[in-house]
Design a protein around this nucleic acid. Structure first.
Length: 859
RNA sequence: GCCGGAGUGGCGGAACUGGCAGACGCACCAGACUCAAAAUCUGGCGGGGGCAACCUCGUGUGGGUUCGAGUCCCACCUCCGGCACCA
């Protein structure tokens, strides 16, 4: 996943001072004796390998982590949080008989490696390889059940090839609004469209629009990225450049609608909905000196209240409509706006600014001539870059009108009376044929009126913009595009991948073509054709990696049809991946981009589901011990290597899950790690011999008592339910309760201990394997069947019922499960505290909820 | 400003569709073992009152619904996250 840049790219793990010291005897168990052993065992035996040929009759479970950007800082404790959660589920589902796909890889293109290269001259490929090695070592030290044979790297030529292939699919496709889906442009060629017409509708197209150019980064940025980089201290300015765009806006409605079928947190769906930003309204055509000036409004019912119009300062018509006497003023204002940063224009916007152009427009509904202004509170990028201003019922227009003394006309009466600035639904007034109509009807009536006269039409507007897809960087996928005679054309698939040329110097050139402009030999494709020098953004590789895991070495297709159909399609849900876990920082961009690519590929017949990710869970941020965000400057960063060194991988895994609910933000506590470490020691001693080989003396082949079976099966039930519900913290509590209950047993039957070891195994797999082996099993427990909770051990003949008098709890009674109210009351009267409360009083009412509560109301 | 999410012991957190608030862990206190410590084991641990069995208050604040509210409703406060002139 794309990450904010970090300076320094060498692995800087290294345990802190004092972290290796063992004082006194071991706290519990010697994890160092077997964690590496089992990691080697799993690797050697391919325990978690998912073979290409599998039993397709079994259910599948595709559980995916957001793959990391392998930064130079190495793994931080935030990574293992989500990774442990998915690992528990992967191991659990495997034991339940699922075919599990649980892969890992590297999102390895990106600016940090390039910036490091600029500083040190070291090739980004070298730093990337070193960082990947560190990350892989760290993840393997945690004992994750990944199928490492499926490891992928977005920078591998074999991967780049298919990223570029997907780009070509988009380049060769257009969005057919009638079919509401993407289709190949060959359809248009058959219809006799011209080259220019086709270029204008491709899903990947070239645009000359103004973009966000950062001189010190030497690249352009997507709108969505600007703030992030600006916050890092980089400058970003608007500048018109030729750029590649992806037509994500064509999919806006589907990206919105298809959220409904996904099991995502509602808050994330809402973020996406807001980002897509659908508004219903109308376009209205004003006459502006013979031109038709179209504006978008969500309130066509207020058209009678339009007292002026505003164009964005960058609006292309400003030049031509400005009256000679206003030209100097207008030019000065436009220059001032161009110099403003978005921050100045947006955040520090207390005062509305603008100037009159000298032009007037004609309101189509009443023929009134109204002044046309330019003001920077109107954005060029949304709607038509022009608005009709209704100061009576729009807060921003009202502020503007007050600042410049423009007339305010009230055309909507609020439910509680007429009011200036009322923006809700009310009743139309001073609006001719709309008078007396409630807002929703008035909107409809006006829209129809406009449509009937050709003065407007119904319109759905989205905030979502097309995706600026090109970057002026070195360390990214080059575009498989050539330029010839001023036109672009696609390279044939047979020439993929197009790899970046070797460079010595990665510095920004200041040339908007980017660093690849230096590689003149590489650019020269033929005497007449030149390569595109832009590269793709880091999002490209992460847009489809979940597909490549399914069939990572396929050289014929990006993924085989059969494998894709099984791993993405066999759940019968709109989304293919059964569970996707990652941070909220990707709530909008990554997840929206990936959904967009997925839909395009789906439309073009390459995929079997319309959505990539069925269920999404966001893990919460882990804070430092001081409750603040971990950061180098605060010195509160916890290094997972140190924790593994002191307490072992199982303890780290267990602690990360025990801290609290997965989704929640929570602070780290080394004391907490010690706590779970002690628990692992107790589990160890419950089964294994305290020191040395063999089993604890209490372990026996005796038949378990009923009480022991009840204890075991309560744990099975609770742990199973909690894993299914991803409540790992309470699952671990249940395991702790089991150990607390079992420790005093003079005899510990294997028939109880063995299932308990299996319950522990997804959480602390190394310890569990070691105990499993000591219990006499020759094979890994990873394929042992998961224990089943049996109701006969959980059902009880008697139930505990709390007893209240006048709503206050006074005790509890144990009664037969099917006891009636009378029996319960009789039992309750035996409790001294209850009897005292009832003394000398008459029971007015008995509320009896069997198995829960008995409430006696007395007077 | 708008939109989300969350406020429970000293701390992290439990509490199924309203039904014994504080499971589990940390910290702390006491005890056992030890020359002593560490480790381990046992017990205690929301506030106030009582020798005690018990009584009483208590889930951000103020109201409400209910036999009964951490849980539902209304109003507010605080913190966190997102968007930010989107017409």
């Amino acid at each position: 996943m794309p990450r904010r840049p970090k300076t320094g790219t060498t692995a800087g793990s290294g345990a802190g001072p004092g972290h290796h010291r063992w004082t006194g005897t071991m706290a519990g168990y010697d994890f160092s004796a077997f964690e590496a052993k089992w990691q080697a065992y799993w690797a050697e035996h391919g325990t978690f390998r998912t073979p290409a040929e599998i039993d397709r009759s079994r259910p599948k479970f595709y559980v995916l982590d957001m793959f990391p950007y392998p930064s130079g800082a190495g793994l931080h404790v935030g990574h293992p949080e989500g990774y442990t959660a998915t690992d528990i589920l992967a191991r659990y589902k495997k034991m339940r008989g699922f075919n599990v796909l649980h892969p890992m890889g590297w999102d390895a293109f990106g600016l940090p490696a390039e910036q490091y290269a600029i500083k040190t001259g070291q090739h980004p490929r070298a730093t990337t390889e070193a960082n990947v090695a560190t990350f892989r070592r760290q993840l393997q030290a945690l004992g994750f059940a990944y199928d490492w044979d499926r490891e992928i790297n977005t920078t591998d030529p074999g991967y780049v090839r298919w990223t570029q292939w997907i780009f070509l699919q988009l380049y060769h496709a257009w969005f057919d609004p009638e079919a509401n889906r993407a289709r190949p442009v060959s359809v248009l060629e058959e219809r006799g469209w011209t080259r220019d017409q086709i270029d204008a509708v491709r899903l990947a197209y070239v645009s000359e629009a103004p973009v966000n150019w950062s001189p010190d980064l030497g690249t352009v940025l997507a709108n969505e990225e600007v703030e992030e980089w600006r916050a890092k201290g980089h400058t970003v300015e608007r500048r018109p450049l030729r750029q590649w765009m992806l037509r994500i806006t064509a999919f806006a409605q589907r990206l919105l609608d298809d959220l409904d079928g996904l099991d995502w947190p509602e808050s994330i769906k809402l973020l996406q909905k807001n980002w897509i930003g659908r508004s219903e309204g109308a376009e209205v055509v004003f006459d502006l000196g013979g031109r038709e000036l179209t504006v978008f409004t969500t309130r066509p019912d207020t058209l009678f209240g339009a007292t002026y119009m505003v164009l964005a300062p960058e609006h292309p018509w400003v030049e031509e409509i400005t009256a000679p006497e206003q030209r100097a003023t207008v030019d000065a204002y436009r220059r001032a706006c161009a110099a403003k940063t978005d921050l100045e224009r947006g955040d520090l916007n207390k005062e509305k600014t603008g100037v009159f152009t000298g032009a007037t427009a004609v309101n189509p509904v009443n023929g009134e001539a109204i002044p046309v202004w330019i003001a920077d509170y109107v954005m060029m990028g949304y709607g038509t870059g022009a608005i009709m201003a209704v100061p009576g019922h729009d807060t921003r227009d009202l502020e503007f009108a007050r600042t410049f003394g423009l007339p305010v006309r009230l055309v909507v009466r609020a439910p509680d009376g007429e009011s200036e600035g009322f923006t809700g639904d009310g009743t139309s007034v001073n609006s001719g044929f709309l008078d007396g109509q409630p807002t929703p009807q008035a909107k409809e009536a006006m829209t129809q009126w406009l449509e009937a006269r050709g003065k407007g039409r119904r319109k759905v507007q989205f905030k979502l913009r097309d995706w600026l897809f090109s970057r002026q960087r070195y360390w990214g996928e080059p575009f498989p595009i050539l330029w010839e005679d001023g036109r672009h054309r696609a390279l044939p698939e047979s020439e993929l991948p197009v790899l970046p040329p070797d460079l010595e110097d990665f510095r920004p050139t200041g040339d908007p073509r980017g660093p690849l402009a230096r590689a003149e030999d590489w650019i020269r494709y033929s005497d007449t054709a030149r390569r595109e020098t832009n590269t793709m953004p880091q999002w490209a590789g992460s847009c489809w990696y979940y597909l490549r895991y399914i069939d990572p070495r396929n050289e014929e297709r990006l993924v085989s049809k059969e494998a894709e159909a099984y791993w993405m399609g066999a759940s019968g849900t709109p989304g293919g991946v059964d569970l996707y876990v990652g941070g909220t920082e990707h709530a909008v961009l990554h997840l929206l981009y990936a959904r967009f690519w997925h839909k395009a590929l789906y439309d073009l017949g390459h995929l079997s589901t319309p959505e990539p990710f069925q269920r999404l869970v966001n893990q919460g941020l882990i804070l430092g011990e001081d409750g603040r965000k971990m950061s180098k400057s605060l010195g509160n960063v916890i290094n997972p290597d140190d924790v593994i060194h002191r307490y072992g991988a199982d303890a780290l895994r267990l602690y990360e899950m025990f801290m609290g609910p997965l989704e929640q933000v929570k602070p780290w506590s080394m004391r907490g790690v010690e706590g779970v470490y002690r628990f692992l020691g107790r589990f160890w001693r419950l089964v294994g011999h305290d020191e040395g080989e063999g089993l604890a003396a209490e372990v026996s082949d005796a038949a378990p008592t009923d009480e022991q079976m009840r204890t075991l099966h309560a744990a099975i039930r609770k742990v199973t339910d909690d894993i299914e519900g991803m409540r790992f913290n309470t699952a671990i509590s249940a395991l702790m309760e089991f150990v607390n209950a079992a420790t005093p047993w003079p005899s510990r039957p294997r028939a109880v201990l063995e299932p308990a070891v299996l319950l522990l195994s997804p959480f602390a797999p190394h310890l569990a394997e070691e105990l499993w082996e000591r219990l006499g099993h020759g094979e890994s427990l990873a394929t042992a069947p998961w224990p089943e909770a049996e109701d006969r051990w959980l059902a009880s003949d008697t139930v505990e019922v709390a007893v209240q008098v006048n709503g206050k709890t006074r005790g509890a009674v144990s009664v037969p499960k099917d006891a009636d109210a009378a029996a319960a009351v009789a039992a309750a009267r035996e409790i001294p505290a209850v009897a005292r409360q009832l003394e000398g009083k008459a029971i007015r009412k008995e509320i009896y909820v069997p198995g829960r509560i008995l409430n006696l109301i007395v007077k």
